[in-house]
């Protein structure tokens, strides 16, 4: 699967299929600080991302 991340902007690949919760664990990200988007749809932590999918892991924390 292809994963797009921000802050800083970068792209990476992981072997699928995987649950969203497991992607967070593998990337060592706190779920409370991110949302996962496939196409235009939000995904919950129990959903499965297929190997051929492209997702965006979007940070939601802002502020100085």
């Amino acid at each position: 699967m292809k994963i797009h991340l921000s802050h800083p902007t970068r792209d990476m690949e992981l072997q699928g299929p995987k649950r969203v919760a497991d992607i967070f664990k593998e990337l060592q990200l706190i779920p409370e600080a991110f949302l996962v988007i496939r196409g235009q749809d939000l995904m919950t932590e129990d959903e499965i991302v297929a190997d051929g999918d492209s997702i965006e892991v979007r940070p939601v924390i802002s502020g100085g």
């Binding site: 409370e32 991110f34 949302l35 988007i37 235009q40 939000l42 979007r58 940070p59 939601v60 802002s62």
Partner: peptide, 19 residues
């Protein structure tokens, strides 16, 4: 922040993701 970002995405509010 997560709930607000989810609301923005669901309601197609085109915001600046960049920090």
């Amino acid at each position: 922040e997560r709930e607000i970002a989810a609301y923005a995405i669901v309601n197609r509010i085109d915001y600046l993701v960049e920090e």
